[in-house]
Design a binder for these strands. Sequence first.
DNA 1: CTGAAAGCGCTTACAG
DNA 2: CTGAAAGCGCTTACAG
Lengths: 346, 346
Amino acid sequence: MKPPGGRTPVMADVARLAGVSHQTVSRVVNGHPNVREETVLRVRDAIEELGYHRNSTARALVTRRTNVLGVIAFDPTLFGPAQTLAGIERAAREAGYFLSMVSLDDVSPEGVVAAADYLIQQSVEGCVAIAPQRALVEALAALPGPGPLVAVEGGEGSGLPVVCVDQAQGAHDAVRHLLDLGHTTVHHVEGDPLWLESAARVVGWRRALEEAGAPVPEPLQGDWSPRSGYELGLALVRRRASGERVTAIFVGNDQMAIGVLRALHEADLHVPGDVSVVGFDDIPEAEYLTPSLTTVHQDFAQVGRESLALLLAEIAREGSADPAGAARRVVPARLRVRGSSGPPPP
Amino acid sequence: MKPPGGRTPVMADVARLAGVSHQTVSRVVNGHPNVREETVLRVRDAIEELGYHRNSTARALVTRRTNVLGVIAFDPTLFGPAQTLAGIERAAREAGYFLSMVSLDDVSPEGVVAAADYLIQQSVEGCVAIAPQRALVEALAALPGPGPLVAVEGGEGSGLPVVCVDQAQGAHDAVRHLLDLGHTTVHHVEGDPLWLESAARVVGWRRALEEAGAPVPEPLQGDWSPRSGYELGLALVRRRASGERVTAIFVGNDQMAIGVLRALHEADLHVPGDVSVVGFDDIPEAEYLTPSLTTVHQDFAQVGRESLALLLAEIAREGSADPAGAARRVVPARLRVRGSSGPPPP
DNA sequence: CTGAAAGCGCTTACAG
DNA sequence: CTGAAAGCGCTTACAG
């Protein structure tokens, strides 16, 4: 018993079939009290019979709530952003929100404005940005935004609420681990220096060295890719050949670490016999590399949950008289010791 | 000059400021002809001054078009699905659509129905499902769906329009490559046997062997994880130790291939000197593994574009009298020969 | 416990 | 070239 004309059934069709007014259907659909039990049943039957779904567009128009959250991702093909995105999606769904996704082709202010416009057009109730670069965070912070905004890995000082992994602590733990094994210093192949995560890892690496009174070699700047890890690994091999003592390398992510391992292997250097290598991220394959890779694990699912919780809190605060105060939630990083790190050669 | 009360400005506010009716504002916003040049300018200025954005909810209600497409992903933390998702997002944005994303926690029919309901509630105009398992495709095909539906990697026989990489051809090329190197047969570590991609790769592998008149060993069933690759690699090492000739292994994906390489290394078997290994996917790190991994590249961006194009075609066809006819677009796979494959030992 | 009225912010004919 | 009217499918007061 579809409505006449094969249209998608609307509330009025359900009302007619159940012999009530459409307001009563609305009450049933929204679980309001004060509807006779028998009426509820009749309405439910009619809904089932017609295959009725409430039109969320009409609902959103009158309630002024779209129930949609936005997510802006910088490059969702990368490991970290993809994991974070998945975490946010799940958390949004569990919180009863829909999720609209937009990715950024670059971090230009124009690109950010376009992405925000895209979400504003959809009347999202708030959004979380996977915002790994300073330029991006600044463009976002300057925005007459699409409602409350949470920046994942957004760094400090932007005024935006932020959820991030404790990159500096993770890096610190990694370097401390290598120093504890007896290395006199630790070289660093960092990721793309434009990324806040890269900068934070550099900070943690440097602090651990300074605390131990170890010399701080100049970090080598990569771009997160295995290729850059390989090339910078070759550079370190050359420095080693010219007499510099390079026994431990902390690499900004696991993919670059794979490149570094490759470079060391080509130079016939053993890991960890000659050189120890520690990565960052704990990609699924890290444990099964040869040797298995000591690395720092990030709980991306937790980051997703925290950012959604923070966003919902911001949305709830909106309009209320509560003070702003840029919140900051930090998820700990965890060192995973595996086969690529060991004591230095004698 | 914000509207009174600090509300979000609406079309009527723009109209008032520009001294026209709200219909004229609508005409300008929608680029209709027949508006005096000077009026257009006045309206544009008012829009700018107020920071007006058209309310897409109200627009959707009257046009009956939400401009939203849905995407159902099975596990967006996996490499392939994440890449495909990114490709779809970009294609949707370029086509002027918004994208709502929902992931599936499992492939149960209930889960699929819940995900579809989720998208139906949002009145998506159509959706693409990253549907790598047969159970999932079947549940989707049985659905009184959320409009037109395209299944990525959806296999055959479901009646759904499908976009997929030519997995069988990719596998065939990989095996052919190994046979051409002189191997008398090729063992296969397959991915999760519930996945259609896994099945298609098995088909291509088997066909290449049969065409060459080579013996067809029983494939070993994994689950895509590096761990399963490692364990099945150990199993092959044992079979080799007990006299079976194992000189070439075609592995269902690169992550499992990493596990296989690890198992071979532990058994002191050289790659490719003793055993050749070929993977599938061409993850970014494949080229920098030791040895660099021969593998089969999939163009996920192309898959994203093709699925969106197909979906838009289905949406356009909807309502028109054109025949259905489950379309099928196949993206070629490309073998990338690297260091992990070579001639068999004498 | 239930229904008649108004209105959310737009677009689409219809007039002029 | 521009405006007055109607209506998309709901929810929210307001009556009864």
